[in-house]
Design a protein around this nucleic acid. Structure first.
Lengths: 417, 417
DNA sequence: CAACTTTTTTTCGGACGTCGAAAAAAATAA
DNA sequence: TTATTTTTTTCGACGTCCGAAAAAAAGTTG
């Protein structure tokens, strides 16, 4: 049953709508905010003056503005913008042997970036929290910032967002590694944990909410296969946060041997090791650990294929077939508007397309397919960190700062209090 | 981006909350409504007096009430209830050769039921609308009711809810059969169209919103395999209404021959014809049309299996394996709280359980499985019509009657105006 | 049986958020 | 300097919710 509504809720929602408008459309005058949000000018004035008093929004003087309005009569518009110093976000990306960090302000401006290495294999459930805390502490010290109010982490593998742990990741030998708890304890700040592929979906949605909206899926094909899912314009993570973990869902019962030890996972046909295994014409049961892969394995295979190497071509054809079946199963279950393929292997999509579409035809009645669009987009490493930042900012806009009477989480900068 | 909120929205939502509370908890006093909805007594009085004036709610005298409160001091509670005559719902269930009908009032009370036969195979895209209109007209004439304000249809197969057509159904030889348009034209009333298995999920959710809430899936295993999906406490139908059509999603690429002409669909292992085909030890490529099935095929097979028939036992074992893989794929994609198995084959779940759980183990890393509960519930034919009525009533509560100043869609009863 | 107690329901006034209209502010044009 | 235009703010009205108080309608008690 729906919840009751009261007056406070209206204000909360409208504050949030104004903040989101400023985030989406950049600095703008009150009159524009009124048009975008459909709130009356009177209400916009009321809400923005609160937000300004609380330090969440500031008046800005955009230099270009003056000239662009040269010769326009009337009272000049005074632009408002999100106040960068109102909060800051530390986005952390966990992958094999690497922790990447990015610091952004409330306006979404990137302030600093960094990276650190660690030994994934040696990680213990207890020790990793400490590693993470130290890495973050070092990074923050180097960038002269006291206390980031929000830490958002994106991790490979299966994330349990209610427990705040990484339930299972190719990066770790151990399971159920606590992440949120040690950070909250060390820094006493709000923390959130997400799956990395979900953050790709989030980034795409923030970049183009129309194209990447409604219900859509992102397939990340790289060292493994991940999936990010939006349902009804919202990130969907399931009951425990483990939704969209299609990489280790079964493609062919009893099929090729996967890294996870099971047989027939989608990843065992599409992961970098799987493609190489196929290209080398090794037995599908060859243990993945014995197959040499590196960061650029997929690029190498694409090169080989483009030079006419039959093994590589075959590997992508087989991968394409698996991909097509994955499309079919996603469509049958979710009827999405769009499926996006990205990751290192997205460059190989032209090599896989034909097999993928043939498999889709074979696997799904045409009447079930709807109008789903399938596209491959070039892979950018940064998408994950950008999505992570975007998600954290959105949660500030809708949850923290929507609350009336909350002043900015003041960020001490430099030596000043 | 979220929409702005205004004053009217508060009232709409709170009216809706009150109506839903009356529906969920039955007749109750204002003070109880206040407790359930968390609205103040003053607000409850204000909202209910509007609702009473509009004919949506009436005061009732429940005979038991008096005695139960014997000896209780204070002003006696005066119970309010949904006013049955405020609207009526005609639920229509379309299946092979049969149209079932049920008429209910706004209070959810069943007023009449009926059924009619028609020749599914002979249906044409243009003619079916007429058949449906006539069937409904006859039914309504027989029950002395003028003009049902809401018609809700549940159909087998793939429903396109934006187009208002049955895109593809085992009941019809033709595709894209218009349903909404002819009804709206003939009766000029609000119509909605859903997939039948989705209505099972809806019925379960209304019966026990806690148990059947959040994200859960219903697998309907019977003549075919259907799926109903709730995501975040709401029915999920995808972008075109074709979500959760797992029956014709691929289980084994190139596998057993399905009714739809493709190979390896889940249904080709779990549908009644598939089970019989296996039990008779026929080749998996034997065309389904040549396999004799009837309404009680599954019951017969269960009997055979319980009497030790090796073929029938094998068939259920194979079906169980397919079911287990389906579980695994659903869990990997959606991470649901619960998966419910129902339909005629749910009685066979004990015969399938072992194979299903073994397949699930084989197909999905344990860490991905979350705390999903898998249960089989006895199949009741009525669940579909009940869910259809429930869905229509819910849409009245939240969309039509939530609007302020809407008086009841007066239902002419008997000879009276 | 009249006064008291208890519980439910209604009434009343205050607070608050949105909106439209009018006023004020700040520019250009004549 | 006055008129015009556009943006922003102010003001008053209206609607909704809520708390408090009053009213209503019973049972209890002496």
């Amino acid at each position: 049953m729906t919840q009751k509504a009261d007056r406070d809720q209206i204000r909360r929602q409208n504050r949030s709508v104004v903040l989101q408008a400023l985030r989406r459309k950049g600095p703008q005058a009150r009159i524009d905010l009124g048009r975008v949000t459909e709130l009356s000018p009177a209400t916009v004035t009321s809400i923005t003056s609160d937000l300004i008093a609380e330090g969440l929004v500031v008046g800005v003087d955009e230099p270009g503005q003056r000239e662009r309005e040269k010769g326009v009569r009337g009272r000049p518009r005074s632009l408002l913008a999100l106040h960068g110093a109102a909060a800051s976000i530390l986005a952390v990306k966990l992958s094999v042997n690497t922790i990447e960090l990015a610091l952004a302000d409330y306006g979404g401006t990137l302030i600093a970036r960094g990276a650190a290495s660690f030994d994934s294999v040696a990680v213990t459930a207890e020790g990793f929290g400490q590693t993470l805390v130290e890495t973050i502490r070092n990074f923050l010290a180097k960038h002269d910032i006291g206390r980031p109010p929000v830490i958002a982490i994106a991790s490979q593998g299966v994330v349990d967002d209610s427990a705040g742990t990484v339930a299972w990741s190719p990066a770790f030998a151990v399971r159920h590694v606590p992440v949120i708890a040690p950070l909250r304890e060390a820094f006493g700040v709000a923390c959130m944990l997400s799956n990395d592929t979900n953050m790709i979906a989030e980034a795409l949605h923030r970049i183009d909410p129309v194209r990447y909206g409604g219900t859509f899926a992102v397939l990340f094909v790289d060292y493994g296969v991940g999936m990010g899912l939006f349902v009804n314009n919202r990130l969907f993570v399931g009951e425990t946060g483990a939704a969209a973990e299609i990489g280790h869902a079964s493609h062919i019962p009893g099929g090729a041997l996967c890294r996870c030890g099971r047989r027939g996972c989608l990843e065992a046909y599409l992961g970098d090791y799987a493609l190489r295994r196929h290209a080398l014409r090794l037995d599908p049961q060859t243990p993945p650990s014995t197959i040499p892969v590196a960061r650029d394995t997929i690029r190498g295979l694409i090169n080989d294929a483009e030079n006419g190497d039959a093994g590589a071509l075959d590997a992508f054809r087989a991968g394409g077939t698996a991909l097509g079946y994955a499309f079919a199963r996603i469509i049958a279950t979710l009827d999405p508007r769009r499926i996006v393929v990205t990751g290192a292997a997205s460059n190989a999509f032209p090599l896989m397309r034909e097999a993928a579409l043939a498999a889709l035809d074979e696997a799904l009645v045409a009447d079930l397919r709807g109008d789903v669009e399938i596209e491959a987009i070039a892979w950018e490493e940064d998408l994950i960190l950008r999505g992570t930042i975007a998600r954290a900012l959105h949660s500030l806009d809708t949850e923290v700062f929507a609350e009336t009477g909350v002043s900015a989480l003041q960020m001490p900068v430099g030596g000043q209090a």
